[in-house]
């Protein structure tokens, strides 16, 4: 019977929400199929040519009936829209208190890194009943991170960060598929999520070579690549300080304000001239091509870490 399986495993909180709407839509579809197909079959038999049925006074339209089957479906549509939209809104909002995972897609593999520093390729180990939030980008073409058992999917787009989260409810191994066509080996850009009991996950996290955390790596990159030469509190150069920056508003030279989120930090590293902080000159060189996607993510993790510290005075 396993070969004729009709539904994928339900292994996340989202999967229950999506399936509920899916079943509702299936029921509504069956309802419409009945109200359309039954009359067609009935009329086809009753009014087949030569049958003795009464054909007198046929009607060629009725404003009331037409309005009925126009307005009825409109209201039904609005209800279905609202249901789908509420669930979607929840799926798109990254919840607090989640385990962070950084994902970089490339032709044709998934590179993942946990906040503790542990790296994986095409595999993702996570603890059950814990929210996992991924920050994703691509170093070449568009990919899409799809876990059918969790009913989640999000395109992984070069040049920007997208997010995807899930809360697994069942231990086990589940498929990861790349869902956006990405070239020759697209169908081999697959992997698995391993959902583990929390204790087993902790053991797995500590196994193997000891690693430095993403924040520690980011701090190292910050110093090795010379960022600290300008952006450290004791620097000689007139550069914005980064403590207390994350998620706070930044005034720009053009008079507008921008929130210092991941995308802003990324753009400031790669295209420093794009959004210049008020009171500063654009003297920073671009790091495009000099930092890997992983290094940029590590840097941002470090900037987030110091970004949550109180602002330092210059």
């Amino acid at each position: 019977m396993d070969r004729f399986r009709l539904f994928p495993p339900q292994a996340s909180t989202t999967s229950h929400e999506v399936d509920a709407l899916f079943f509702a839509l299936t029921l509504i579809s069956l309802f419409f199929m009945v109200v359309i197909f039954l009359p067609i079959i009935f009329f086809s038999v009753k009014y087949r040519r030569g049958s003795p049925a009464d054909r007198s006074n046929p009607r060629s339209g009725s404003f009331l009936i037409e309005s009925g089957w126009t307005i009825g479906p409109i209201f039904l549509s609005l209800g279905l829209f609202a249901w789908g939209a509420v669930a979607y809104f929840r799926m798109e909002r990254r919840p607090a208190n989640a385990i962070d995972v950084q994902v970089v897609g490339r032709q044709w593999m998934w590179k993942l890194q946990h906040a503790e520093g542990k790296r994986e390729i095409n595999e993702l180990h996570v603890p059950v009943n814990t929210t996992v939030a991924m920050t994703m980008t691509s170093q070449d073409v568009i990919h899409s991170f799809f876990v059918p058992a969790f009913r989640v999917k999000q395109d992984v787009v070069p040049g920007k960060y997208t997010g995807e989260w899930f809360k697994p409810t069942r231990t086990g191994e589940y498929h990861i598929f790349c869902a956006q066509y990405c070239g020759t080996q697209h169908s081999r850009m697959i992997g698995r999520v391993v959902v583990m009991e929390p204790a087993a996950y902790e053991r797995w996290l500590k196994s193997g070579e000891p690693t430095e955390s993403i924040v520690q790596t980011g701090e190292r990159v910050f110093h090795d690549r010379g960022c600290s030469g300008c952006h450290a509190p004791n620097s000689q150069f007139h550069a914005p300080l980064l403590q207390g920056l994350y998620r706070n508003p930044v005034p720009l030279v053009n008079g507008t304000m921008v929130t210092a989120d991941d995308q802003y930090l990324r753009d400031s590293i790669l295209q420093p001239g794009k959004q210049i902080t008020a009171g500063y000159q654009n003297i920073m060189p671009s790091f495009a091509g000099h930092l890997s996607e992983e290094e940029i993510m590590q840097l941002i993790a470090y900037l987030k870490y110091i970004g949550n510290q109180p602002p330092a005075s210059q």
Partner: peptide, 24 residues
């Protein structure tokens, strides 16, 4: 018959949360 089924399954794709799963 076929257009009705095609149209009704279009509703699944218009419904945001379900589309996320079945997209692509």
């Amino acid at each position: 018959g076929l257009f009705t089924i095609g149209g009704l399954t279009g509703l699944f794709l218009a419904a945001l949360a379900v589309d996320v799963h079945v997209h692509d």
